[in-house]
Amino acid sequence: MNTKILMTSCALFLAIMGILLSFLPNEIVEYLNVKPNIITILFLKIMSALYLGFGILNWMAKGTLIGGIYNRPIAIGNLMHFGVGAIALVKIASNIQIHSEIIISLSAVYVIFALLFAYVFRTNPIKTEK
């Protein structure tokens, strides 16, 4: 599998999420009908930092071999993030009443990335010619 495409798409997804959470936390809270307070905004900004950090990690690792024994921490970190996130989102998706389209969309993205990173983690990389 060509992990450069996977890492690039994952980095872009995480960067977009991080930028949205960083620059639009008040609008996101308002759209989700959550009571805005300083703690909610703080948590969204901290979550934004996590998304941006993971995004830049994936962007910087996109040109390296990933899988098997190569860059194992990057593969398992991404698998853990997307795997646990996918489980949490899928559990919520069937019970949520409002904004279900957002949760279902995020669930689909997280499940796809979790499956792809599980595959990368379990297989040995193949060096491709540039």
Score class of each variant (00 low, 15 high):
115 L>A: 15
96 I>T: 12
121 F>Q: 02
114 A>G: 04
122 R>L: 15
99 H>L: 13
121 F>V: 03
99 H>C: 05
115 L>H: 04
123 T>Q: 13
96 I>W: 02
127 K>M: 11
103 I>A: 07
93 A>N: 05
93 A>S: 14
103 I>N: 02
116 L>F: 13
127 K>Y: 11
94 S>H: 07
128 T>H: 11
115 L>E: 04
105 S>H: 02
116 L>C: 12
123 T>Y: 02
96 I>L: 06
100 S>R: 10
118 A>V: 07
101 E>P: 00
93 A>Y: 05
109 V>R: 03
101 E>N: 13
107 S>Y: 02
119 Y>A: 11
96 I>C: 05
112 I>H: 01
119 Y>Q: 07
117 F>T: 03
124 N>M: 09
110 Y>L: 10
93 A>H: 01
125 P>Q: 08
103 I>Y: 06
126 I>M: 08
117 F>Q: 04
102 I>P: 00
106 L>R: 05
119 Y>G: 02
108 A>D: 00
109 V>H: 02
119 Y>V: 10
98 I>K: 09
122 R>C: 13
122 R>T: 11
110 Y>A: 15
121 F>W: 15
93 A>D: 03
97 Q>V: 13
122 R>M: 15
100 S>N: 09
123 T>L: 05
101 E>Y: 08
94 S>V: 10
106 L>N: 05
100 S>G: 06
121 F>R: 00
119 Y>L: 12
104 I>A: 05
104 I>H: 05
102 I>K: 02
128 T>P: 00
93 A>Q: 03
94 S>D: 06
98 I>P: 00
111 V>Q: 03
96 I>G: 00
123 T>F: 04
112 I>Y: 11
97 Q>S: 11
108 A>Y: 07
114 A>N: 05
109 V>L: 14
109 V>I: 15
99 H>R: 12
102 I>F: 11
93 A>F: 03
97 Q>F: 08
113 F>G: 07
124 N>D: 13
124 N>S: 14
100 S>D: 08
126 I>G: 00
103 I>R: 03
113 F>S: 05
124 N>W: 03
124 N>C: 03
102 I>V: 14
114 A>H: 08
108 A>V: 15
124 N>E: 14
94 S>W: 11
125 P>V: 08
99 H>Q: 10
117 F>V: 02
108 A>E: 00
127 K>S: 12
109 V>W: 09
